[in-house]
Design a protein around this nucleic acid. Structure first.
Lengths: 332, 332
DNA sequence: CCAGGCCCTTGGAGCGCTCCAATCAACGGG
DNA sequence: CCCGTTGATTGGAGCGCTCCAAGGGCCTGG
């Protein structure tokens, strides 16, 4: 009653088990006649190759482990989408785990990836120490996506956060803004570069005196809190560059509640160009990065290492772009 | 140079391989002294149990396959989150696949789940024929989440769409609306029940004459198109019950572009209470279903079948609830 | 007519683990 | 003092596949 094995197919087709194996793996040197007989027998028996046994024998699982920070942020959902799509079209499966904020669950997830003998690991967002990263990289190819914890012999795909931040600031300055505040992403992935890009761009534009950073993180609440903070001040900035879209949404919401119009009173720029930035009601000017495409690139890069034999790490930096919507306007 | 195996640990600890196996599986009948020795040896060698070999030998992979329709819709992201969380806390891994609209890729994903010998499958959204479902259910426990394609000996977890639609209509009617249009979800999961719930509630409230359904699907564009359709009419309805939040957002956006205020001119109710329904700028009145919790329930239900030995299918129906925000108001 | 190749096919030895039946030591009770 | 019990430990037989070395036809050139 147990499902048919290769042995059963071989018997039914009157050939050896090895031959069935060759047919299943689409090996070239098999006569058409036998191939047909094997395929017919397999079909008849409802044979289904056992990927577990195959993995054990071949020492390759055709599986990549993906660790995401937070599926609720569309950013992660989009990258997951790109990853899954590319992986499955390359014949790979995706083992997915999410670290629920706690770093401990991250390491547990990695542990189970390694036990499962995944062929590669993609880290989307989570912060690990360099030791942790290189430790796992010693077992299996690792790629970080969008995160900044790289540089330890692992591949990485990210957008040029620095450049993106510059685009945002230049856009605002171009509109005539000078008092441009940045709400940071705190210790989140990419937050540092965005903050530095902001500072640098401000300096380059001669606005060094106006540099003003409110510490936040990548959540909606943090945006609302930042708004509260700003509202307490004697004078609002005329523009805000938010560390990401969700935070920007939280910020704009709170400002609206307080009767502060966007962009009439304050212009707002986000980052990521996630789904809802384009919603008519938000219409958020933001920095676009092709997240799904980056997910696909990640898989390709990893495959390149896993089967292509590349060994030196490859860092891919994607150029972000500015998307202007209605949340920005010249200052009054 | 290959990673240490149980054999190596056994040798190092001076015990048999079987004993190491017992220790690794936390079996009870092992003397403390030997257990300690084995653990020490394993640690020393950096031993990592090979889950592939374990799966082959034990015929259980501790993996569940999850097939999602569309990660972009927060609904799916949320359920994925609940599923992953519960699965990993039960010691299970999640193999994730997304069907990219095309049904063919759905079946390919299922195929690879079965080849991987997953212990169970959760289908979130995709529509399969009853034959397909019962076919896969004959191999492995299957559960459908939020989908309507059940009833074939498989478990299911869903909210009471019917009831949810009633809640929406009753809310609008309670505000004084009579001309309530429904933009449907077309052939998507749950769309039928929502439409029927709408029709039934309208009838119960004596509004049968006003039943009016615009065919759409579960996307933002479809909402915009529905708005266009409505705008062509001589007279707008005073309220719209949208098949889901994203569609509602698209609809509201297009209405706003046309200068039609929500809720001043038209009230709008969505469905799902996805993340952005709560954004201040949308503030969409909608029907809430505890999606993440439903994801967790799905896993529990599946585990119950996989290890608990339950065989009769279990259908879990969750009561949805109404969340009133600012997109609804009495008609003018 | 035979050696030398070239294809196709096959048996067998694992891959690293689980699980079962068998073994062994220790312990009381009759 | 022997034997049944109980609990800890072990060898061995798989799990279903891949991979490799070797075998068997058959064709070709000398």
């Amino acid at each position: 009653m147990s499902p048919p094995t290769m042995e059963d197919v071989a018997r039914a087709a009157g050939v050896s088990r090895a031959l069935v194996s060759l047919v299943m793996r689409q090996a070239p040197n098999v006569s058409d006649e036998r191939r047909a007989r094997v395929i017919a027998a397999a079909e008849e028996l409802g044979y289904r190759p056992n990927a577990v046994a195959r993995s054990l024998a071949s020492r390759r699982t055709h599986t990549i482990g993906v660790l995401l920070n937070d599926l609720h942020n569309p950013f992660f959902a989009d990258s997951a989408d790109g990853i899954i799509e590319e992986a499955s079209s390359a014949g790979y499966q995706v083992l997915m785990a999410t670290g629920t904020h706690v770093n401990q669950s991250h390491t547990a997830a990695i542990e189970s990836f390694l036990n499962a003998r995944v062929d590669g690991i993609i880290l989307v967002g989570p912060r690990f120490t360099p030791e942790q990263i290189s430790d796992m990289a010693s077992h299996v190819p690792v790629l970080t996506l969008g995160s900044s914890s790289d540089g330890h012999g692992v591949d990485s795909v990210k957008n040029d956060e620095y450049r993106g931040a510059c685009l945002a600031v230049e856009h605002l300055a171009g509109l005539g803004h000078t008092r441009i505040t940045h709400v940071s992403g705190g210790r989140g992935a990419g937050a540092d570069s965005r903050r530095q890009g902001y500072a640098r761009a401000m300096a380059d534009l001669g606005l060094a005196d106006h540099v003003d950073v409110v510490v936040g993180d990548f959540t909606e609440e943090s945006g609302a809190e930042a708004a509260d903070e700003l509202l307490k001040r004697a004078e609002l900035p005329t523009a805000v560059f938010s560390a990401n879209d969700i935070q920007a949404a939280g910020l704009m919401g709170r400002l609206a509640e307080a009767g502060i119009g966007v962009p009439e009173m304050v212009s707002v720029v986000g980052y990521d160009d996630t789904t809802f930035a384009g919603l008519y009601q938000l219409s958020l000017t933001t920095i676009h990065q092709p997240v799904a495409e980056m997910g696909r690139q990640s898989v390709r890069s990893l495959l390149d290492r896993m089967v292509g034999g590349r060994t030196e790490p490859r860092k891919l930096v994607i150029e972000p772009s500015l998307v202007v919507r209605r949340s920005t306007a010249p200052p009054r």
